[in-house]
């Protein structure tokens, strides 16, 4: 469904991605792991059009999308969240989501209907009671929900989730994992997620891809990747290897 081939990207002489390939199948949840600075968010920024790759290509349903503008990619059906949550701080929670509804894929251009649709999404993500608060004043867990609601508002077929579980406590994380599962089932979206929290990864993903220094070092089922010697060495370290 979403495919990347030989993606290279460098910043001022520093190679962030060195020929990464990936393939996302319809309906699955693909996880991406890797130490900090291994190029995960860079890859997401390339898929969502914020960066242009130096070489390589990204395809959505056989259509080449690298080089398109971020809004075009969103309108083709790729939604995303940001690692460092970025609510439109001076707007209310409802407005944040409504803007996604207004401009997303097959956007609803009529203001009142967009509002109604946004309210449904807030209901679904459990933010309905806070819809009139300024988004900038939400606690972290709610901001993460807002990121999800806003991305959903654009009616994506593929959703890129950049560390939506990071910084959450145990209860909040359980809720968030549950929310992601419901999103996949009820909205029928395919999910590509970056995650550090191993528990979440093992629980939520069908397959995992591991990056290290801008290269793919492993790909497969969670068990396969977690047991892969290169991954253990590069990312998990001895502590995690022991625990597994």
């Amino acid at each position: 469904m979403l495919k990347g081939e030989g993606i290279y990207k460098s910043f001022g002489g520093l190679m962030a991605l060195k020929g990464v390939d990936f393939h996302l199948r319809r309906g699955e949840v693909l996880g991406m792991i890797g130490p900090n600075g291994s190029g995960k968010t860079t890859l997401f920024n390339i898929i969502s059009g914020l960066y242009r790759p130096d070489s390589g290509a990204v395809y959505l349903e056989r259509r080449r999308i690298d080089g398109l503008k971020p809004y075009q990619i969103t309108q083709l059906g790729i939604g995303r969240t940001f690692q460092i949550v970025r609510p439109l701080a001076h707007l209310t929670v409802l407005e944040n989501v409504a803007i996604g509804v207004l401009y997303g894929r097959d956007g609803i251009h009529q203001m009142r209907r967009a509002k109604a649709r946004a309210e449904e999404l807030l209901e679904f993500t459990g933010l309905a009671e806070k819809q009139d608060q300024p988004a900038g004043r939400l606690p972290l867990a709610d901001r993460k929900r807002l990121e999800l609601a806003r991305a959903l508002a654009t009616r994506p077929s593929v959703l890129l989730l950049d560390e939506v579980f990071a910084g959450l406590n145990q209860v909040e994380m359980e809720e968030a994992i549950d929310l992601v599962t419901r999103i996949r089932v009820e909205f029928g979206v395919t999910i590509f997620m970056i995650e550090h929290v191993m528990k979440a990864i093992m629980q939520a993903c069908h397959r995992i891809l591991a990056l290290h220094h801008g290269q793919k070092i492993a790909e497969g089922t969670p068990q396969e990747v977690a047991g892969h010697p290169d991954v253990i060495e590069a990312y998990l370290g001895s502590t995690y290897a022991d625990r597994l």
């Binding site: 914020l50 075009q72 401009y103």
Partner: peptide
């Protein structure tokens, strides 16, 4: 950036 990722043709 966020605006563009929400589909707004900035």
């Amino acid at each position: 950036d966020v605006a563009q990722c929400l589909g707004i043709p900035a």
